[in-house]
Design a protein around this nucleic acid. Sequence first.
DNA 1: TCCTCCCTGTTC
DNA 2: GAACAGGGAGGA
Length: 295
Amino acid sequence: MILQPVYWKFIAMPELPEVETVARTLYPHVHNCLIQNVEVLRPASVHPLSLPMQSLCGCKIANVRRRAKLLIFDLDSEQSSKKEFGIPNYLIAHLRMTGRIFTQAANTEQGKHTRCRFMLTKLNGEPIQLFFDDVRAFGQLLAATPQILEQWQFWQNLGPEPLEIDQAVLASRLGSRRQLKTCLMDQKVLAGIGNIYADEALFQAGIDPAREACSLDKKETGRLLKSIKDVLNRSISQCGSSIRDYRDADGNVGAFQNSFAVYGRGGKICKKCGHILHKIRIGGRATVFCPVCQK
DNA sequence: TCCTCCCTGTTC
DNA sequence: GAACAGGGAGGA
């Protein structure tokens, strides 16, 4: 079944599992679509290193995939009509907090928070639109060549994908004395984990988020990696079902909240031991943990 | 290594 | 009408 745009356009706070889901569900809608025109409604939503968005005109979307929290459209640029701008190989979107990318009918008007819209045509000539909406306007689009990616420090510094590493790699990434949770959210250490999944993985592993990253022994590192992968994989698989559930929910757009053990549950009862969950700040971010279960 | 800022809708 | 949500840049 192909998910309709209305279901996945409401995903909030996109971390690795959410961006993965957007990539998978967007693919069938935009694969082989030709970019006919681009309208930038908020210039600051285009990354400073980006080629002009107009350079995307004439490019065909060959694939949609994820790296870290980035959504990447691989482009086939053979028919690019705006060669004077340079020819991009990728359109990359960082959704940050509230960014959303979704298709709409060709005659749909832009929304209040639409930052950029793309007019596309499918292989059969049918026109559709691709919207980039972003309430808090933190998200950015980047039309990039491989040369631009070489200059993009954030891209160059991205750590490994957490779903693809083994225990030895994780141990080597956690060598610093910084607080463990800060390290997990650092995209240079691991790519794709944000506040939600850091808290959830640390709870599942039973490890205190404020510990020094380098203080974990072998057993704890193994447990942490298992928990990270489990939380991410469960979310990726639940994501589909949660999104489908959304159809029946009455305006409640927070599809994943129901399965969180700690995130957003400060002051509530720990589902494992019944103790009150503590809420503190680590690295400037709200952090919820169980002082009994997490040592 | 840690803090502040960006941005706006929601909650208190 | 203030506090809060937070990823990452940039400065202390």
